[in-house]
Design a protein around this nucleic acid. Structure first.
Lengths: 201, 201
DNA sequence: CCGTATTCGATAAAAACATATCGATACACG
DNA sequence: CGTGTATCGATATGTTTTTATCGAATACGG
């Protein structure tokens, strides 16, 4: 139960998701070897990752599936739902608002903001972006998702921070500068793509 | 001009995008210091990245903007357009089909496939997924983008590979197993989110 | 009840990556 | 024409992450 590295943290949700697929199969136990093969990771890596959060498996048996799931969910804070708002309800923003998969990891998107307000997307309201600073505090959202064009991404980020968000998930293709107290995750799709293209050569 | 590490490769498109914003400003030269400040990266890191692809900058002056852009574009293969198809035209798939930013990095999405064909999204046709193996070869697409539910992601990947794609961009929340000859980039949004949530604590 | 195969956990080695330091170069300015 | 300063490139150091190795523990078969 020591500290968890950033790269380990990235894999934990993947383990969790995989383990959940085992539940319907009534498999009680799972070995690190088995996990590593299913996910295409190194065997030792998996064991090390699991060691950092779980309280151990048993030789010849492996880890107890349900206990491991519970540990992972607890660690990742599933259940303690974080609320988020999306700024920029274009195609990508809409897609994220409709996306079902976030609930599994404890995120609830409560509203959207856009220059063009609309009655609602996926049952959630879309307000005028001008009212962001006034509405956001009472929503209790701690995460801001940025899906606006590159030109205004930094402005939106600044405004979100001023309104009190603790974390920013940035889908625009520019790097965003923030105070140290705020966490940022850049999700530059165009960059990811370039990496893939290059690998293909 | 040595080999380029994976993490460097991830940053190159970011540099490229930033440099392009300088063109309208008629700025002839740019220093690594300036880039590092604008993007929030280490100064030395930027210099090292650029050294690995460019043929050098000049002290007191910096790098020549246009030459650097040309070098980056050449290295990243912009111009040599790769074609891609999207399998799974739900909300996320639609968003990607509409997204304008990919062209900048040399990707053209030529068609979509779904269990429910539709007349077209963003001017691109959406075919029945059953006809994937017959239509894909004549399209000349080398990249397959997977935006289907987790349960069928592996099946779709297998079929894409059988149809001859060289790379897969996987947006489903499961890890996909592929032969070594095929490049995969997993874009697990739920996992990214978990990392962000955890950072906020 | 004992040997064997499997699996865990810990330590050590290796690799990848980021950061720091330093001399060299080229322009600016007096 | 010399000095100062900004900036590059290279080397070195430190950190993080992955991979390899080894002993110990435990269930299962005989």
């Amino acid at each position: 139960m020591q500290s968890v590295s950033k790269s380990t943290l990235k894999r934990l949700p993947i383990y969790l998701h995989y383990l959940k697929t085992l539940v319907p199969l009534d498999q009680q136990n799972i070995s690190a070897t088995q996990i590593s093969q299913a996910l295409g990771l190194g065997e030792v890596l998996v064991r090390k990752d699991l060691a950092s959060i779980s309280n151990g498996g048993r030789p010849k048996i492996g880890y107890e599936v349900h206990a491991l799931i519970a540990t992972l969910e607890d660690y990742l804070g599933v259940g303690k739902v974080s609320k988020a708002v999306i700024v920029g309800v274009g195609r990508l923003g809409q897609a994220l608002m409709m996306y079902k998969g976030f609930g599994e990891f404890g995120l609830e998107i409560v509203a959207g903001f856009d220059v063009r307000p609309s009655p609602g997307v996926g049952g959630k309201p879309v307000y005028d972006v001008k009212s962001l600073s006034s509405l956001l505090p009472q929503m209790g959202a701690s995460i801001g998702i940025i899906t606006v064009p590159a030109a205004v991404a930094q402005d939106v980020a600044d405004e979100l921070i001023r309104a009190g968000v603790k974390g920013i998930w940035n889908f625009s293709p520019v790097h965003i500068v923030v105070p140290q107290a705020v966490a940022v995750k850049n999700e530059n799709l165009a960059a990811s793509l370039a990496v893939l293209s290059k690998q293909i050569k």
